[in-house]
Write a protein that binds this DNA or RNA. Structure first.
Lengths: 324, 324
DNA sequence: CTTCGTTATGGAGTCGTTTACATATGTTCA
DNA sequence: TGAACATATGTAAACGACTCCATAACGAAG
């Protein structure tokens, strides 16, 4: 592929002149501009972004690490982040960690090697790896260290809201199906839910799912679902797991919401598609994604911002799996 | 950040020796190896992948362009592609085209500038832009030119299978809800379905959706859904749209599958979560993704492979929205 | 007529790698 | 003993960009 030297030669000008033309920095006569542009098109020249990044020390690239891009929550995040990054002239380097600390750590090296301008890591499982990183990092849904900003929804309060709603709907014998213990976000939801229950002196039965989002969720968790006993309300750690639970209960002939009321978490697109549609807690994904990338770009631009937790508001989305 | 010169100096050796150590090419004494490794860790040195790529002319990076990463079908593809790319030592540069030709074209320039080793583009909307590209390209679900390999499911046959199944289940008055005309994949499904109907001398009513995957699908397409008249079977262009249709019909009190049988397309994870669970046509996403990336890497490695269409088999997944 | 600012251009050094080549030592084998 | 080879290392020239600096022409201002 042609390089800047080829263009300069073919256009009969110096390299510096071509560079000035490309970057619109410094003087280039109109006459020469036309000549250069013509050659660029003839040779289908695309300036080498790698060479440029080496020199300017600015790759205009952001590393995005998510557990898995097929997870509906994280790919919505990714979509929002891509949108804003693109607007700001940044590109996305995608990494799936698979919730695997080793893969995360390897990708972290890769991102450093590629000199990404900044990193967004969702649900990190490899916190020690970030101790000596000199690239701006924003952590999503996971506290890495007191040097790294964490952005997340207010999961704790979301859990509280979920309890209050079920309680208000008349539930007095509730079950909480919680996610794998290693996820901060779902732990916070649980804590919020249980704390609110304690306030009302209600005892909650706990069932633990061992998988997060999985296509085969139902079969894999059928064991734990069989433990569902007498209850009038269930709070499930996310919408997809809730859908799994609904499916399970319907197969057993349980009427929802008349006999058992159910709540999910996330306000994923499937809530509306389910029957009955799923009452849930909304995470403001749009705002979350936008805020995360904005913070990161501020860090990249060396603006000084408070290193602290940023919690985004969660709220109740009332649908048909709960009574009025 | 430290560079190779710093390492060489600090370790008291030459640059070439450090490079040989890093790449395990040529001789380096064990004694020196230890010394270099120690310095590398002390200075937290990460070799600059950009500089390396400039010289070797191999960025070990693959550009992935999809309509949108939040689309469940394409993010599953992306997940599979990431997995295999990672295994082969490649990284993913993510681009959302939003089905927007201009955005796609701009990203195509960016990918060329970044000297990606290869490009996977899903559902391209900007075919002319690929005429003078000298980077290997695999096109997914879209025919760009006779120089570029296309990979897709056998959508046409999938449409036929769908018709045959509904017919076999007793449907004689069918509606087909088709996707936006500009998508080759859904057009092929329609053609297959309609051709099979013609074979049986059945006339099919057509309804067109104007949106592909959208969170607000139901509201946006309520207009066209109102056109659903008397029928005993509906073939919808994909699962999520089918879920929207089911939701709509249930609200109207239509019993599924007793009164109307429904089929989707994709075999997305939501099929199992719906009630009744959705009969659909499977697209072998795993195989599709794996095959796509394998072909691309073969192209990158200059293996000569047939430039032709690669069609992957689609098959019926029988669930509860159709009778026996 | 000199000085100054604006316009316009190009050469050379730099960014951080890899590799071709030169060099040097030690071992083996005829 | 000396040729051949394996081991070990360093220098310098690429790769493709950007930018500092030098150079030069030109008009305006003093």
């Amino acid at each position: 592929m042609a390089n800047i030297r080829d263009i300069a030669k073919e256009a009969g000008v110096g390299i510096a002149t071509v560079s000035r033309y490309l970057n619109d920095t410094g003087y280039v006569s109109d006459e020469v501009k036309v000549k250069i542009q013509k050659v660029i098109e003839e040779l289908n020249y695309k300036p080498n972004a790698l060479a440029r990044a080496i020199f300017t020390k600015n790759s205009k690239t952001i590393g995005l690490m998510v557990p898995n891009i097929s997870n509906p929550f994280f790919n919505q995040m990714a979509s929002v982040i891509e949108e804003y990054a693109n607007e700001m002239g940044y590109n996305i380097f995608l990494c799936n960690t698979d919730d695997n600390p080793e893969k995360e750590s390897k990708y972290l090296d890769v991102l450093q090697s590629h000199r990404v301008a900044g990193i967004i890591v969702a649900r990190s499982k490899c916190k020690e790896a970030y101790s000596n990183i000199d690239i701006p990092v924003i952590s999503f849904e996971s506290h890495i260290s007191d040097k790294i900003i964490t952005v997340s929804s207010d999961n704790y309060n979301g859990g509280k809201i979920a309890f209050d709603h079920l309680y208000q709907c008349g539930c007095r014998k509730m079950i909480h199906i919680k996610g794998p213990t290693c996820f901060e976000a779902t732990e916070d939801r649980s804590r919020g839910f249980l704390d609110a229950a304690k306030d009302k002196n209600l005892k909650i039965d706990l069932i633990e799912f061992e998988t997060d989002f999985q296509v085969k969720m139902l079969e894999e968790n059928i064991e734990s679902l069989n433990k569902i006993g007498e209850c009038d309300g269930i709070f499930v750690f996310n919408d997809i797991a809730a859908a799994t639970v609904i499916k399970f209960l319907r197969k057993k002939g349980v009427r929802i919401p008349e006999e058992v009321q159910i709540m999910g978490f996330d306000n994923s697109f499937i809530c509306e598609l389910l029957h009955p549609s799923l009452t849930t807690i909304n995470q403001p994904i749009q705002a979350l994604g936008k805020y995360t990338i904005e913070l990161l770009i501020k860090l990249i631009n060396d603006e000084d911002i408070e290193i602290e937790d940023y919690l985004m508001e969660t709220k109740l989305i009332k649908r048909e799996t709960t009574l009025s």
